[in-house]
Computed example of a mutant assay.
Amino acid sequence: MTCFPFSFGKKVRYVEKHDPDIDEELSGIQNVRIFTYKELRAASDNFSPSNKIGQGGFGSVYKGLLKDGSVAAIKVLSAESSQGVKEFMTEINVISEIQHENLVKLYGCCVEGNQRILVYNYLENNSLAQTLLGSGHSNIFFNWKTRSKICIGIARGLAYLHEEARPHIVHRDIKASNILLDRDLTPKISDFGLAKLIPSYMTHVSTRVAGTIGYLAPEYAIRGQLTRKADIYSFGVLLVEIVTGRCHTNTRLPIGEQFLLETTWELYQQRELVGLVDVSLDGHFDAEEACRFLKVGLLCTQDTSKLRPQMSFVVKMLTGEMDIDESKITKPGMISDFMDLKIREGKGVDTDTKASSSYNASSASDSQSNTMSYAASTSTATTSTFTAKYDQTL
């Protein structure tokens, strides 16, 4: 299946001084509308605080009404944003060429002077981190049918990115705060600033480790090995979070219960997985289906990346079209096994932590879930960028 680029008509010219490097990049993009700063300022009522729907290290997100009547989420990057020019252009390049029910839709962007703004479709129900896992009050009740729909939708979106989009796309930051929900609670994968494109002719990618602690696959977090299986690990963690209504890490719990994957593995061995299902459901759920979802979560988070199923198979297992071979479930790569990874300045490791860039930057996960980009140190204590083998089967 090929991608379906979409167009918003003739580009709008801007006349203020702008970054020539960005301008050169934008000139090669055919499917993105270029907004003026003036029209976005008008759409958001001069970026009124009353229209702000999100805040993070990247800047702010405002709800706005465009001239054509469309309601938009206007993502304004601050001058000190941790999302640099490269990430800004990556997000535009990736999302402008793809369209899927379970991916956010890019309306356009604005580049004037030092202004960098992305304009997305507005999604009424914020992120999973804010609504399902957030500590704040939410008027949404996530019954089992809704959770099942969300899990399958995210899986389908990832399967599209990994297997149908050309070139293939590794998101690198799948997590609860990057899953936005529309009016019907249909999930949309967002924030493609860290995404990597994998053309079919490439056998490997060279990249710094980037993502969110708690969702990072062990082989990627420690050795910098990036394949699509890193996304699949992240999805597995998210899948377990959605079923249980719990964050991947909670340091307020007793030591033995702080890491959700560890608890899931232990209860799986005891054949008591059903006890993990969110108590807020009050027993109103399909126990067989819930346990199947948790087993898929374990399959996706196995320590050996080659054992993790590809996303199209994950979709089939979640929908019941494919049986789960439990003999293939092995111990997951535990978050606690690499939480003490050395990330110190001056020790050959370059760190860069940024807040979530979903509509609301606050996440239900504790301080362990910072998004980060770093190069791992070698035995000679020098900063290194890993070259990870990329196998089409991974």
Rank of each mutant, 00 (worst) to 15 (best):
N126E: 09
K229V: 06
D286H: 07
T383Y: 06
N370A: 14
I255A: 15
S369R: 02
C247F: 01
A159W: 01
I53F: 02
A364E: 08
V314S: 05
S127D: 04
T382V: 14
K105Y: 00
S312T: 14
P199H: 09
Y268I: 08
S78Y: 04
Y220F: 10
Y160A: 10
D337E: 14
D282G: 13
V277M: 11
G113Q: 15
K354P: 00
L66E: 05
L66V: 09
D45S: 10
D21E: 15
S135H: 08
T371Q: 03
E321S: 13
L123S: 05
H18K: 15
E39R: 06
N178F: 06
E16T: 12
S127Q: 03
G134D: 01
Q392V: 13
D21F: 05
I150E: 10
V61L: 05
Y201F: 14
A375L: 09
C300G: 10
S127M: 08
Q392R: 13
A165E: 02
D391V: 11
S138A: 12
A42Q: 03
H100F: 11
I232K: 11
G297W: 03
N93F: 14
T90C: 12
S234M: 06
E25G: 09
D191P: 00
I74Q: 05
I232G: 06
G113A: 12
T351G: 11
I242K: 00
V296G: 11
V111H: 07
F235V: 07
E272I: 03
L299Q: 13
A361D: 02
L307Y: 07
V12A: 10
T371W: 03
S305A: 14
A42I: 00
I152T: 11
S148E: 12
V76K: 11
V104K: 00
E24A: 12
F88D: 04
S362D: 06
K145W: 06
N250W: 07
L341E: 07
D191N: 09
E219Q: 09
T353H: 12
V170G: 08
T212K: 12
G108F: 02
K389E: 08
Y359R: 04
C247P: 03
I169L: 14
I174G: 07
Q83D: 07
H168D: 06
P5G: 10
L128V: 07
L267E: 13
E288I: 15
F142T: 06
I174W: 11
V170N: 04
E97H: 01
E39W: 08
Q55D: 10
L394N: 12
E16A: 12
D184H: 11
K38P: 00
K354W: 07
